[in-house]
Design a protein around this nucleic acid. Sequence first.
DNA 1: CGCCCCATTGAGACGTTTCAATGGATGTGG
DNA 2: CCACATCCATTGAAACGTCTCAATGGGGCG
Lengths: 213, 213
Amino acid sequence: MHASTVSLTTPPFNPPTGLHARSFARHRAVSFYEAETEIYAQGERGGAVYRIEYGAVRLYRLLADGRRQVVAFYIAGETFGFEARPMRSFFAESIAPTGLTTIDTEGVDCCPSDLMSLALASMVRAQEHLSVVGRQSALEKLAVFLVDLHDRHRGDGRIALPMTRIDIGDYLGMTIETVSRSFSKLRAMGIIRLESTRSVEVLNLKRLRLMGE
Amino acid sequence: MHASTVSLTTPPFNPPTGLHARSFARHRAVSFYEAETEIYAQGERGGAVYRIEYGAVRLYRLLADGRRQVVAFYIAGETFGFEARPMRSFFAESIAPTGLTTIDTEGVDCCPSDLMSLALASMVRAQEHLSVVGRQSALEKLAVFLVDLHDRHRGDGRIALPMTRIDIGDYLGMTIETVSRSFSKLRAMGIIRLESTRSVEVLNLKRLRLMGE
DNA sequence: CGCCCCATTGAGACGTTTCAATGGATGTGG
DNA sequence: CCACATCCATTGAAACGTCTCAATGGGGCG
């Protein structure tokens, strides 16, 4: 799978409104990545972070036995790509058609505090992800996952799921069958409604939160 | 459990040699924490990070059902306490008698790159921890844990385990019984030798690494 | 329209958790 | 200094939940 990215100043379809690269520059070129496209690869040289204007991205690493650990999902408005080493520790791929703006971090030895904040936000996200993956049953994991997406999405009760069940499984540390069964169980409990496999409506957010812990 | 810390310039017993706060200041007061002492609590205001001169620290959070997720262990020479929010997201406690130097990060809106590096190192550590906890069997998890400690400890084949089996279990997402059984299994395989419950000798590092993946 | 991948559901195998008992190490008080 | 209490660690047996293997269904794209 190779990156075949096209750099555009305007996306080829309607991007969500109200999302502009207002953090670091007034106007900035938006790179377009079609779905399932590599943004950077493990082992590559770093030196930049990315802000998602629209779409979604997964960060993952490959284990020696071929398994895949999805470390994080990022959606519109979020920034990813912070790495400690000069080399990338993870792969980054677009999940859906995605527009990115690039923020160069090359050679900054004194970084602005808002960049530091974004990096730290990524760290806390990772540490909280730990609390979810490490313990709890499959049902609880999925509940936390959905609540997290709900809060980040800040929409009504409708959650878009750009990622596949495989992605979710690799993120939560369980098989796709268990993911699927857990969705069905939440539905049977009247907590969610599956509008489609890629869209969930939360019927009872309170109970969903309670399941998380 | 309340912090009863004593600020000293010299620790009350022999600290490991060769460990001085050389990163940010030439001489700095070393605060002493006896074993099992709170360094900071979830919900507290942040504003500082800590460098471990000797001893060990655990970072954890409490879940609503009373379970505990240990997010990280830190040992001598390492720095912890990076947080994205003004409030602490985790508890930090000394595991063994520990000496810390404090690095104030209050009100820095332009942080030095080496501080940024330390923060990013914490993030990568957390993300790699994910790969371990999320998947793999109990035996593999413990193998990765021991290899990690081995590499950080940079000693010979002897690994000090300042933490209890409970800590390890809460860190790897498994019960203490499974932790214990996994230790026994590694020993039966001739890969490790348990000098005591708190000290492990690695007999076959290569095989131990292979188990991790 | 048909193929292919993704998602769902079922049944059995496997591994971890739970419950329980024992042993060992440590620290305290008689 | 020994007895005892307490906490931690180990080990066993059964219960539970997830994984594996398998079959079916559904949606998207060529």
